[in-house]
């Protein structure tokens, strides 16, 4: 009996180590789609960077719809992928159900906190990055009115909008911020047509700089802004090159770094909450040759000063998700 047991456990250990050795990391993209030029694409780029650097391979999965979320996650974990990385808050509830069933698999979720011993939760201080691009928007605006177009109306996106509005008012207390959300469902992450309509409507209200925090929907916002001859601000990835000279800057959220790190840590992924903030270069604003002419030295100096203050803790940007209120804007 004991002999049998030790045999069995030896076999089990062997099987486990064999599984670990062969484990490749995996990533599941949210409904915005892998090539949204923003959030999911940043994640994909992080994964690709890891693959080119290490020569490793990874599994990737796009879902067809909302109902497949849990199955997608389960199947990926079942297939032996480790760690499994997922982009987007919407996986939160599902991951809380699935993670306990796969104690030997490590999971990483971006934009949401899931409390489980085998889950790493990566969140960003989007309020800080949005604050900085808000300052730039206010200083670049000639009309004194700037716009914000969010994707799905959730506290996370309001955090972007609230940080942005605070930055705008810090640079120009008389400025007006027009806020719009694309929708209330995940379809709002991938609706460039509606994004374009909202951008036109905001321009009609006088906005001449529009910040899009809306995943794939932002593609329509940036396009319309370029067509209408006003400025836009991209999000998550560096979207400056999409319309050179017409995108003021991009609020960069290093989703790519989060994915890259998770893949690099591999099966030794450290569970817990990981906050990527301005200080740790988790968020920031994009400067490159495409927007060099749009950003004046004064703007740069002001933003750098604010950035230093935020990093030192001297300036605290109000986080919408801390109390679901915003001192600078009403949603």
């Amino acid at each position: 009996m004991t002999l049998m047991k030790s045999f069995l456990s030896a076999a089990a250990t062997l099987a486990l180590t064999a599984g670990v050795a062969a484990a490749e990391p995996a990533i599941i993209f949210d409904l915005g789609g892998k090539f949204d030029k923003s959030f999911n694409e940043a994640a994909f780029n992080g994964a690709t960077k890891w693959a080119t650097e290490t020569g490793g391979t990874f599994k990737e999965l796009e879902m067809q719809d909302e109902a497949q979320r849990e199955q997608a996650l389960r199947r990926l974990a079942e297939s032996g992928a480790n760690p499994v990385v997922m982009t987007g808050f919407a996986f939160g509830d599902v991951l809380a159900q699935v993670a306990p069933d796969f104690p030997n698999t490590k999971f990483a979720i971006i934009d949401m906190v899931v409390d489980a011993p085998n889950v790493k939760s990566v969140v960003f201080t989007e309020d800080q990055g949005s604050y900085l691009v808000g300052m730039m928007a206010a200083m670049a605006s000639k009309t004194g009115t700037v716009g914000f177009i969010g994707g799905m109306d959730i506290p996370l996106i309001r955090r972007f909008g609230c940080g942005y509005a605070q930055g705008v008012l810090a640079a120009n207390p008389a400025a007006k911020v027009v806020l719009n959300m694309t929708g209330t469902t995940p379809a709002a992450w991938n609706d460039p047509v509606k994004g374009a309509e909202l951008a036109k409507a905001q321009k009609a209200q006088g906005a001449d700089v529009i910040y899009a925090a809306a995943g794939g929907t932002g593609v329509g916002v940036l396009q319309t802004a370029a067509d209408e001859g006003i400025l836009s601000i991209g999000v998550d990835s560096n979207q400056n090159p999409m319309h050179p000279g017409q995108v003021l800057t991009s609020m960069i959220k290093r989703v790519d770094v989060a994915v890259y790190n998770a893949f690099k840590e591999g099966v030794d992924l450290v569970p817990g909450i990981n906050v990527l903030d301005l200080k740790g270069d988790g968020v920031g604003y994009a400067m490159d040759e495409n927007n060099a002419k749009l950003v004046t030295p004064e703007m740069l100096a002001a933003v750098e000063a604010a950035s230093a203050k935020i990093k030192s803790g001297e300036l605290v940007v109000h986080d919408y998700m801390s109390d679901n209120t915003c001192p600078a804007a009403t949603f």
Binding site: A67, Q68, R69
Partner: peptide, 10 residues
């Protein structure tokens, strides 16, 4: 799923 989500009928 044990809860109702959007497009549940898939």
């Amino acid at each position: 799923s044990g809860r109702l989500v959007q497009n549940s009928a898939s």
